[in-house]
Structures are given as C-alpha cells and as structure tokens.
Amino acid sequence: MFSALWQSILEWLQTLFFQQEMELTILGLQNAGKTTLVNLISTGDFTDDRIPTVGFNMRRVQKGGVTLKMWDLGGQARFRTMWERYCRGVSAVVFVIDAADEDRFETARVELQDILSRRALDGIPVLVLANKSDLPGAIKDVDEMVDVFGLKDIHNHEVSVYSISAKNSTNIDVTLQWLIDHGSKKASSSTAAAVVSAPDPPSTSTIPPKPSS
C-alpha cells in the first residue's frame, strides 16, 4: 500500500522536475559513427575504433534540463528492417551519414527515404548529420547534401541538415541545441504542432551556420 503511494508521489515529483524527457532514434549505415556520436554526447569523450553494434544501444543522458533517451541502432543490413520498430512515437529521428564515403551515398539515400516514407513516422522531425567532416574529401556543403539525399522531396517531416565531426567535436553544440529544442517543443506543446510545421521547405529554415573550421 505505502510503497505504491510513495511510488506515485515520486513519479509526480519526477514529472515536475524532469518534465522534458525526449526519445531519439539514431539511424544510419554501418560505420557512419552513430555509436561514437552517442558516446560523445553522453560522456563528452571521443572514442575511436568501435566494434559494430549488434542490435541496439540504449543511452540515457541529462542535457540542459532535458533527459535524452537515445536508441542507437545497428547499421548493418540485417538490422535495417527493425529500425521502424524503434522509431514509432519518438521525439526525433537522427540519421547519421559518413560524409567521406561517397560510394555509399546512394544506399544511404534509399534507406533514409525508405524509413521516412513509413506512415508510422509521419510528422517526426528528422535531423540528418553528415559526420566525419574532418576527413579529406568529405562533403561539407549542406546544400549539396540536400541535393544528394533528396531532402527536398520529403514532405511530411521537418528535416534539418548539419555537417559535423564527432572526432573534432565540430558542430556538436548546435546539434545538441537542435535536439533540446525539439525535445522541449514536443514536451511542452503537442505532437500536432510538429506535424503542422512539417511541410515547410526544409533547406531555408534549417540551413545551419557554416562550419567554422
């Protein structure tokens, strides 16, 4: 009896203080740097040379009054069919691309378009991250990314693109800010608001500042 009561009081307190809890799903082909990014966000350290994620990783992080729950999914082909199951009802989907791996851009585009065309994901804001901008030959131009990945053709999502480097921590701060903003928006207003704002052409409103380096 008492423990149940105590539990409910605790939960109520929790909702007061940690109102802003957001769920993120991080997708992308294998070796795009998803797990590295998640580790960077949660620990602040860059760790290289990760073994491939078999299945998924789950991370909880407190950032600026928002609790981030990150589902970091494996990028190998056998896991891509399962992505959708972890995208339903999340606050945002982050799609990580290896900007230096031009050969797999096409595959990444197909996978991105495919997952975003699912009805279950309608209205969920999407953040596309072109990772590894520190590598030579990496695409850093955001407009080019929008063209290559056909981001203008996506209509039922709010799509933003950033060029980042997890290794050099380039643009990680803006990424975090984007995430926190979308988390709070979702928590404070309703999901409907996100849907309404979706049809905006993404390139204009969401072009990030040019990388400083």
Partner: peptide, 12 residues
C-alpha cells in the same frame, strides 16, 4: 523473429 537485436544490450 530477429531476437538477435538484443545482442548488443546483453554484451553490455
């Protein structure tokens, strides 16, 4: 099906 998905969590 696809129970393999929890491999990473379990390894952790």
């Amino acid at each position: 099906e696809e129970v393999i998905i929890v491999t990473n969590c379990l390894t952790k």
